[in-house]
Design a protein around this nucleic acid. Structure first.
Length: 256
DNA sequence: ATGGTCGCGCTGCGA
């Protein structure tokens, strides 16, 4: 089962790109972030025509996550537990076949001294609690999304200069490791040792053209999923297309 | 140049 994660930065603005990639890559499950629309506005018909079922947790203008799957999507749960006052649509979870999947959009954090950065660290803590609880079920699980953190120096284009800035701050990397230390595995890094493989390039400063990227989109696998991990990679082709998202898909293949 | 470019939606905010 091929499972991908992709921050599309508006599903409406990106629909031609998304449809092209679904046809080209034919993933079984796609975990989308930043769809930037309410549930009713999600282009379910166009995506359904390609054979996908859809589960959406949308929001007007900002955020929004969704799951696409060729098989039925069961036991859908919307929202990350742990803070009843958090109304931002950043988490959706479901079961597809024998694998539990989730699409996560971790807050960007804006700047290190902002309230949004504190919200980001709090979100990481809640995500850790959720993943810890799910691990107790001892099932195959893939938690994919835009984590908005590059875990290690090899995951950013200039680690010395960027250290301490948003998406590569020591507190964010520690929050990431706290999740990893629960016992989940970064699927891409489990199979690739090479540095300089990125999933996001800032529109500003023409980051893609100048090679200034970050690896911030990840698939975290439970041990039961890692045992079945056949392949994983980052597909940078969609990032070079016209009207591209600033993120590109990351995928893994789990044996049936 | 503490900038740059997108998307949303109509003014500036979030990323």
């Amino acid at each position: 089962m091929k499972i991908a994660t992709w921050n599309v930065n508006s599903i409406k603005a990106r629909l031609p790109n998304v449809l092209d990639w679904l046809k080209e890559a034919s993933p079984d499950v796609v975990l989308l972030q930043e769809i930037k629309c309410v549930d009713e506005a999600f282009p379910e018909l166009e995506i359904g025509d390609l054979g996908y079922n859809v589960a959406v947790h949308g929001q007007k203008t900002y955020n929004g996550v969704a799951i696409l799957a060729k098989r039925p999507i069961e036991d859908v749960q919307r929202g990350l537990p742990g803070d009843d006052t958090d109304v931002e649509a950043r988490y959706i979870e479901a079961v597809v076949g024998d694998i539990r999947v989730a699409s996560v959009y971790v807050p960007n954090g804006q700047s290190v001294d902002s309230d949004r950065f504190a919200y980001k660290l709090g979100f990481f803590g809640r995500l850790r609690d959720r993943i810890g609880g799910l691990l107790d079920q001892e099932e195959a699980m893939v938690i994919g999304g835009d984590y908005n953190v590059a875990p290690a120096p090899e995951d950013v284009y200039d680690p010395d200069r960027l250290d301490g800035t948003v998406c590569y701050h020591p507190d964010e990397r520690a929050a990431w490791r706290q999740i990893v230390h629960l016992g989940v595995t970064d699927a891409f890094r489990a199979l690739h040792r090479e540095p300089g493989r990125y999933s996001w390039w800032d529109y500003r400063g023409r980051g893609f053209e100048t090679g200034q990227g970050y690896r911030i989109d990840h698939l975290l696998l439970s041990p039961q999923a890692v045992d079945r991990l056949d392949d994983a990679d980052i597909d940078i082709a969609p990032r070079s297309q016209p009207k591209a998202s600033d993120h590109t898909p990351v995928w893994c293949a789990i044996a049936e």
